[in-house]
Design a protein around this nucleic acid. Sequence first.
DNA 1: GACCAGGCACATC
DNA 2: GATGTGCATGGT
Length: 234
Amino acid sequence: MKKRIQTIYELLLDSFGSQKWWPAETPFEVIVGAILTQQTSWKNVEKAIRNLKRNGLLSPFSLYALPIEALKSQIRPSGFYNVKAERLKNFLKVFVEEFNGKIDNLKKEDKEKLRIKLLKIKGLGRETVDSILLYALDKEVFVVDAYTFRIFKRDGIIDSENYEEVRSLVEENLSEKGTETLSKFKEMHALLVELGKKFCKKVPQCNRCPLKKIRAKKGVEDEFSRDKKVFNLR
DNA sequence: GACCAGGCACATC
DNA sequence: GATGTGCATGGT
């Protein structure tokens, strides 16, 4: 399995190139984006972030002090703006009141302890928290998302959608001593999103694995295909 | 107009 | 644990 995950990583990197994620200017912007992008296309998130920047509000203390109704109107383009404003406020309360609004104070924390603490914030689930840990705080955590499940399922790597299972699967198989584990975790997630956006849309009648397409383009054999089983694909 | 998007909480079985 | 629903804007 180790070779298999690594092979996919190299194949995607070769096909799409380094993605240099997360698209943001500061770690704090990463966090705001991570919350706003829940079940939402990045284009819409960009609009919301542009609003915040234009009005000089994209900082911990400005957002903390901003009345929630004003926040809602700022982030409106990102959709679900009522719940997302609440979720941002929930995070900001902890961030400002317990960490003084300083990213470095979050970075100092132990990875596992901080993960558990952030998961307790209402509105921050596993993917959001792991995105924050990985891309805003440089913690070695792999982010699993809907595309990861879809692509891995269609390639026969997994058969269930257990978040923690897939996370440790990638974390254990993609890290290798002597290599840049952190940047590999960042790239792998970004590459899977890129592949998913291009070739793995949520079309129920389409079970084609996008990796097959990439392999064909590169003239690469899927050396693991004979181990494949037939799963319930979606 | 239908369907989807870089989730999450909550209810129900 | 698995499955279903509300949350909402904007692009295809």
